Amino acid sequence: MMFAKPYSASDEMRYFQTARQFPDVFAPRDADSHKGSHGTLAVIGGAAGMSGAVILAATAAMYLGCGKTWAGFCQTQLPFAVIPERPEIMLATAAQLLQRNDISAYAAGCGLGLDDDARAVLHSVLQRAAGKPLLLDADALTLLAATPELRAAAQAHGRLVLTPHPAEAARLLGIETAAVQADRVSATQSISRTFRAVTVLKGRNTLVADPDGTRYTNISGNPGLATAGSGDVLSGIIGSLMAQGIPPAQAACAGVWLHGAAADLLRDNGIGETGMLAGELAPAARWLRNRMIGLMLRADLGGQN
């Protein structure tokens, strides 16, 4: 998909100013870099009937520049030998993937399921991801809220990103969803303190908070994001940035902004807000990241002259 005229000059300047907040995300690649330079992400989830969630997240990770991406399915055997449209993504069962020692970052929960097998997989993820950046989303958050052992393991992790929607945030805090929505800032900060994690509370003007109280309010995005799989794409984007060595807090803030800005880009190029597909977001986010890298490079070179 091409974006010949995505926004006006004033919009581009606004995007450029926002991108300036995330210098590591929008830095150009070294000329001698290779796939190993840009990290390996393990995306784990995709129980039977929910394989698409892992595929969406893993695809987004590739589009956002991850060197290598594994899709690990919470199933006894692979649902297919290869993803026809995305053969770049390596496939494994969750059990197989959790035996690997070459993973830079993990993203777990997309379509994971809520049964005992899913609980066991999440326990293994928390163990294997010790010392590595780890994003937990969707079913992983529900399991975390309901299982004291998992909760304790998550609190001890130290490099954790949680990406709840309001209902998941309510489960993590043991309160009603309406209470979360009534004070989204307090809810986000409370989750971050409780789990010693970067927390992304999704919704209009998505909030990001880290344990020390630093908060970011996102202004990109539109109702087109209210579509199945949108959250999986966000998990893939943030996970990809973490695998590339971006610190979790910056990866979360930049990932949220790119995700929303990609939706704005699609809307402004004639896709519209109604019927926007989650799978359309990652190519738009890739275009935007590269556009901002180019603009920043030119601005930096101009400042040196």
Rank of each mutant, 00 (worst) to 15 (best):
M90D: 02
L162N: 05
I175Q: 09
A94T: 00
V25A: 08
A120F: 04
R196S: 13
P164Y: 05
K35W: 01
M242Y: 03
G213A: 12
S186V: 13
A282W: 05
T274H: 13
P211Q: 02
I175P: 06
A152W: 06
G36A: 13
G275Y: 03
Q304P: 07
E149K: 13
D102W: 01
L173G: 10
H259D: 06
A57S: 15
Q75A: 00
A140H: 04
A209T: 11
W257L: 02
Y7W: 13
G65S: 05
K35I: 02
R100D: 01
L97N: 00
G49N: 02
W257S: 04
V25Y: 06
R289Y: 11
R204T: 15
A167V: 11
D183A: 09
R20M: 11
I175Y: 07
K5C: 08
T227E: 09
A47N: 14
A278C: 03
G203N: 10
S51H: 09
A61N: 04
D24V: 11
S124N: 12
Q75W: 02
Y63H: 15
R86T: 07
T163S: 11
E176N: 13
I237E: 02
I238Y: 09
P164R: 03
G294R: 15
A251M: 07
T40C: 15
S240N: 02
Y63A: 12
Q99A: 05
Q304T: 13
V125M: 06
N218P: 09
A71V: 00
Q304N: 13
E168Y: 02
L98C: 06
T217Q: 15
L201N: 05
G203V: 04
R128P: 04
G39W: 00
A249I: 09
G203Q: 09
V161Q: 04
T69C: 02
R298I: 10
R193I: 08
H34E: 09
Q75I: 02
A251T: 11
Y7G: 13
A169D: 10
V233R: 05
T163G: 03
D102M: 04
G67T: 05
D210M: 15
A278L: 03
A209N: 12
A167S: 12
P247C: 05
L162K: 06
M276I: 10
Q181Y: 03
R286S: 14
G113K: 01
L78N: 04
S104V: 02
D32S: 12
A105N: 05
T76Y: 08
G303W: 11
G49W: 02
S235P: 08
S230V: 12
L301D: 12
G46L: 00
Q189L: 14
G231Y: 01
L114S: 09
R298E: 15
Q75M: 12
L241A: 06
Q21V: 00
P283C: 07
A156W: 00
R215M: 15
Y106W: 04
E176D: 14
S190V: 07
A178I: 11
G213K: 14
A146Q: 15
T227N: 04
Q127N: 10
W287H: 14
N222I: 03
A167Y: 06
Q21Y: 09
V256S: 08
R196H: 14
I191D: 08
P248R: 01
G46N: 02
P133F: 05
T147S: 14
D232C: 03
L258G: 08
M296S: 15
D268P: 11
G224N: 05
G294P: 11
V125W: 01
M13F: 13
G224T: 07
T40W: 15
I44P: 00
T194G: 07
H34V: 11
